[in-house]
Computed example of a mutant assay.
Amino acid sequence: MEYIKNASKGFQWGVEKAADLGYRYVEPMVHTGWDLLSEVNFFHSFSTEEDPLLMKEICDQAGVKVSSISGHSPLMKPEAAVPRLTQAIVFAAACGAKFVNTDDMDKPEWMEDDFAYTMMKYTLTKANFVAQRHKVYICIEPHGTFTCTSKGILSIVNLVPSPWIKINWDTGNFYLANFEDPYEGLERVKDYVVHIHAKDISQQHSEKERGVVTGTPVGCACGEGEIDWERIFKILDPLDREIFLSVECGQVDEAERSLAFLTKILGEKLID
């Protein structure tokens, strides 16, 4: 749903536009409380104060399904992350989705690493109780202090032994962070990957921010940047499970070109 960010439109408009473009699934972003821009349909995020079945109804009417919920929460800040994650899990379950995406985010300067891991373990322990009940995966994404290395993201995934804590692989974030080869990193964590943010990074963006940031809100159209998609799918191909690709770009036309590119390159691997 990030593809409509620059269009300054609301959730329902974005869902209907996704359907028009040919997408069969969307990944809604949720927020707690009330957001003025969303209330006046200038932003696509959906409040968890609303009825989750309203989200499902809007998607059903447009002919698309919810693949996952973008419930990004600072795992090191449990007072924010626990209610946000648990509400996102309930929304996912109500809409028939199996995944909620989140990440560690940035560690405060005053927080020691051991303390950060204690906070993240608490957050994930609480959220895991809800995930187990609703049978929804909590997917950790590379986009923060610890998650942008394969060792780091696995250390968080394994904080709480659970079949419901997995990985949402963000192709663009891991590439930009540049702590290790992005394809070797994916190879190391692939057994935990159940969801992917299909994000490409333009050459200009790469030259400006690679090695400087650990993540970015959106990328360019898939197939028009620095990501080697054929190599990514070669790594994932042996996995015997369905994996959702959630395109993450910033413009409607980029979403259209991304769908055309991914449809072409994946071919018969796409599930109808």
Rank of each mutant, 00 (worst) to 15 (best):
A62P: 13
M29H: 07
V193S: 04
D200V: 08
D51A: 06
V30K: 04
P78C: 10
K151L: 14
A92V: 14
K151A: 15
A18T: 10
F46Q: 05
L270A: 11
Y117L: 06
V157E: 06
Y117V: 03
M76H: 14
N128W: 05
V30G: 07
D60L: 06
G225Y: 04
S67R: 02
F129E: 13
D170M: 05
K121S: 09
F11C: 04
A93W: 05
R257S: 04
L245Q: 13
V82Y: 13
R257H: 06
G152F: 12
V82G: 09
M120S: 00
A131T: 01
I235R: 03
G219V: 11
Q203A: 13
A221V: 03
Y175M: 10
S150Y: 13
R188S: 11
K208E: 14
M105S: 07
K5D: 09
L124T: 01
S67H: 00
P182W: 10
F146Y: 15
L75I: 08
N41I: 01
G211Y: 05
L259R: 07
E184F: 06
G10M: 02
C249Q: 01
C249F: 00
D272H: 15
N101Q: 12
V194C: 10
L85H: 08
E209D: 06
D181N: 15
E268N: 10
T214E: 01
W164D: 03
K17Q: 10
Q251K: 08
E248K: 03
A7G: 05
E50Q: 14
Y192C: 01
R24F: 00
A221T: 02
L75E: 04
G211H: 03
V26T: 08
